[in-house]
């Protein structure tokens, strides 16, 4: 029968304990201090979380595995400052669960993509990259024109709120309506959206068609938000802090 009791053999348990102790020191010493980081590096006042539509776009970014070819981390190196813009600060991704810093640039870094290209450029580029950038080796994403499923957004915002992202009750309750409102400028719903999220998030028909809320709306809203959640990097660069 399955002998449940077994003599906890002295030597092998000693080996197990030694391995655990040896293997835990490195992790503790490097990870623990990071959790007291906010004592020295407080979050910039103007850091805003992603709006529901941007969050839905981020989920699509993750779903399609964009991190496999694109990074979101401008390093503190001269050529990267010239090519991409101010180097990325730790506080910029404080609300990113998980962080999407990435580890490979088969495609360019996207940390400062917000506002660099027009929405129409993004629509054409996502549907067929080679129509806009002939030498691009990026796959095309024709299925992004399908309607956006916003059913999980309230629960998503609630879960993130539980993890410390500043979404209040109204934001969570109005998550689905706000996702639609952000792609419908000039509507009364859009005013409600801006009452909750302020004037900084862009409110426009990202995929060019205000009558439908598509996955393109969400993904482009997210891409346009990259690097614009706080102005701290521009201030840090201006002060000349390396």
């Amino acid at each position: 029968m399955l002998k449940l009791h077994y003599n906890l053999e002295k030597i092998s348990m000693g080996l197990v304990a030694a391995i655990i102790v040896a293997a835990s020191i490195g992790g503790l010493v490097e990870i623990a201090p990071l959790f007291t980081l906010d004592e020295t590096v407080e979050l910039p006042g103007d850091l805003r979380p992603n709006t529901p539509l941007e969050l839905a776009g981020r989920e699509i970014y993750m779903r399609e595995g964009c991190y496999a070819c694109h990074s979101q981390m401008v390093r503190s190196l001269a050529d990267e400052l010239d090519r991409y813009g101010p180097y990325s600060l730790a506080s910029e991704s404080a609300y990113d669960h998980p962080m999407l810093w990435g580890s490979k640039r088969t495609g360019p870094d996207l940390a400062r993509l917000g506002g660099k290209y027009s929405d129409d450029w993004h629509v054409a580029h996502l549907i067929d990259p080679r129509s806009v950038v002939p030498a691009s080796i990026m796959p095309s994403y024709p299925w992004l024109t399908r309607p956006l499923d916003t059913a999980l957004l309230p629960d998503a915002l609630a879960t993130l709120a539980r993890l410390g992202v500043p979404y209040d009750k109204e934001m969570i309750a109005a998550a689905e309506a706000d996702a639609l409102a952000q792609s419908r400028p000039g509507t009364e719903a859009a005013d409600g959206f801006q009452a909750r999220y302020g004037a900084r998030p862009a409110v426009q028909a990202f995929d060019g068609d205000p009558s439908r809320l598509t996955e393109l709306d969400a993904l482009i809203a997210y891409l346009q938000s990259l690097g614009t959640l706080t102005d701290a990097p521009y201030r840090a660069l201006a002060e000349g802090a390396p």
Partner: peptide, 22 residues
């Protein structure tokens, strides 16, 4: 445990622990 004390620990204990263990 303030951040600075933790960082101090990381920089010192790590080394002492390393040499002793070795």
């Amino acid at each position: 445990m303030t951040h600075d004390s933790l960082v101090y620990l990381s920089k010192t204990v790590g080394l002492v622990w390393l040499v002793g263990f070795f």
